[in-house]
């Protein structure tokens, strides 16, 4: 089970709305390498691991990814706060606004809705952990691309923090893979 904690994992304080960045950052909410895919990937895979330690790392990283999902959602929400619909449309969010208003919905940067086909759960520990390591590297690369697109330090700071977490998770999954193969 889970218990909700009434705080973000890392502070987000956007003073200047920026719909252009909201449109691209939302891919880490519902895109192929986003936090929703990450969380579901690990929480699905954890049921079929040969070692308790490896189920543990999947359980705990899968849980942390939910906190990251909340951070990305907060980023998007604050980036469009107070921005009128016509301004959203100028930045490519007109279609999004028509379907979802100011609510969060898992899509990628082009508005393509989330699909569970973004991740795998094979019941084969080596296949799953290698996928997980690749997933963390892909997410790191996306955060780096987003940082390249950003110019506001209030946006860059939490993106850099989220990027760091991908690096740590990659390291832990590598250790989990070695526990299984050595």
């Amino acid at each position: 089970m889970w218990i909700y904690e009434r705080k973000l994992q890392y502070p987000i304080k956007i003073k200047n709305p920026d719909p252009r960045m909201a449109k691209v950052i939302i891919t880490q909410f519902g895109g192929p390498d986003g936090e929703l895919a990450a969380s579901l990937r690990y929480l699905c895979q954890r049921y079929c691991m040969p070692r308790k330690e490896v189920s543990g790392i999947l359980n705990d990283i899968g849980t942390e990814e939910l906190a990251h999902l909340e951070m990305v959602g907060t980023l998007v929400k604050q980036l469009v706060a107070g921005v009128p619909p016509e301004e959203l449309a100028k930045h490519g969010l007109g279609g999004y606004y028509a379907d979802h208003g100011y609510s969060l919905f898992p899509v990628d940067g082009n508005g393509v809705p989330f699909t569970a086909a973004y991740f795998a759960s094979k019941g084969d520990p080596v296949a799953d952990l290698v996928e997980d390591m690749a997933a963390e590297q892909k997410a790191r690369a996306v955060y780096e691309n987003l940082i390249d697109l950003a110019d506001d330090p209030d946006v860059i700071d939490p993106l850099r923090w989220l990027r760091e977490r991908e690096v740590v998770h990659f390291q832990r999954f590598g250790e989990a893979l070695r526990m299984i193969t050595e």
């Binding site: 330690e53 543990g56 790392i57 705990d60 250790e175």
Partner: peptide, 14 residues
């Protein structure tokens, strides 16, 4: 919190 989360993940594999 992040210190403890990080340390917890480390302990999962160590």
């Amino acid at each position: 919190d992040i210190f403890l989360i990080d340390l917890g993940l480390y302990l999962d594999t160590h």
